[in-house]
């Protein structure tokens, strides 16, 4: 038996959420008295032996360039072959875009129960029970997986990595796979910015900011802090900001360490995407704004007066 974790790469680099998934997989292996191994597909420039520090004993690679585009069907085929060859009884993914596309397919292929969006280690005291988010962050469910093989997708930012000093063995995995049926004809990614789903700090703006010309109040603070930027739905709907920044029930659900909301009322559908943030800060001129009920810190005030001062104070702090 063993635990297998899928490492998601982009442009040759392993994603941060995959390191979390690796640590999480290693802890499950420790709890069940087995090894944690990893698989990464496509050509990777990162040094893979450092995965040993995250508790991974062996990293299996399939360094084939055609795999640099993720095709869920092909990936499933390869990961299933790897899981079978190392006799994995638990397979871990990050609950990100790739995890959401691949894990359900793998679940069918391995006849393995899937819990999507886990937020904690499985409880092994009575079977195999995984805590996950339900009702868009408004509750948790404890879900028992009853099949011999278990698949978990871990929500980003919900498991802290613990670093050791070991080094992982890197080994080439060979298997046959089909050609992709999905043809990717164009791809545009914002490279270099912090992806919202993985960001630890998020600065977000709502309709209270009046127009896209005022977004400097959001982006200046984000830049100083190395934070990602987000927005409420109406802001994306009128194209003040790109759609991938929209958080909430119908947008992205995130759980950063800091969610800093400026001029957002805090409608229940907005909260559904951000209520798992560890610290919530609300800047709103209306003391009755519902967001204050979900906030840890707040200022009842005009964003146009308060924000420049906050940005200045952060700038000073960063220079100190």
């Amino acid at each position: 038996m063993s635990v297998l974790v899928f490492l998601d790469q982009s442009d040759g680099h392993i994603k941060k959420s995959s390191f979390e998934a690796a640590s999480y997989a290693a802890k499950i292996a420790e709890l069940t008295g087995t090894n944690a191994e990893a698989i990464v597909l496509g050509t990777v420039t990162d040094e893979l032996s450092i995965l040993g520090q995250y508790g991974i004993s062996t990293v299996h690679t399939v360094a084939n360039e055609t795999l640099n585009q993720i095709d869920a069907q092909v990936y499933t085929q390869i990961i299933a072959a790897a899981a079978t060859s190392i006799n994995a009884n638990v397979v871990v993914f990050s609950n990100n875009f790739s995890g959401k596309a691949i894990a359900p397919r793998l679940s069918v292929r391995l006849k393995a129960g899937l819990v999507a969006g886990a937020v904690a280690l499985p409880d092994l005291s009575n079977g195999f029970v995984v805590k996950k988010n339900v009702f868009s962050g408004k509750a948790f469910a404890h879900v028992a997986i009853n099949s011999p093989i278990k698949i978990i997708t871990l929500n980003p930012n919900s498991y802290s990595v613990v670093l050791g000093t070991a080094s992982a063995t890197v080994s080439t995995f060979t298997t046959e796979f089909d050609a992709a049926k999905v043809q990717v004809t164009d791809s545009n990614k914002i490279i270099g910015e912090v992806p919202l789903s993985e960001a630890e700090l998020v600065i977000s703006g709502g309709r209270g900011l009046k127009g896209p010309e005022n977004w400097g109040l959001v982006t200046d603070l984000a830049k100083l802090l190395g934070a990602a930027t987000a927005c409420s739905r109406p802001v994306a709907d009128v194209d003040w900001r790109p759609h991938h920044e929209h958080v909430g029930q119908t947008g992205l659900a995130i759980a950063p360490n800091l969610y800093f909301a400026i001029g957002i009322s805090g409608a229940i559908q907005h909260l559904a995407g951000v209520n798992r943030s560890k610290v919530i800060v609300v800047i709103n001129k209306d003391p009755e704004a519902p967001f204050f009920k979900a906030a840890d810190y707040g200022i009842v005030g005009d964003a146009f007066e308060v924000m420049p001062k906050i940005i200045e104070a952060v700038r000073k702090l960063k220079q100190a």
């Binding site: 404890h142 879900v143 840890d296 200022i299």
Partner: peptide, 25 residues
């Protein structure tokens, strides 16, 4: 392959700490 054994509500927040708009720093 799965069954829900229990639900749980998140812990209630302690309440917001408000800072005066005159001293945003």
């Amino acid at each position: 392959y799965t069954s829900i054994s229990a639900f749980e509500l998140p812990p209630v927040k302690a309440g917001v700490k408000l800072v005066s708009p005159d001293t945003p720093e």
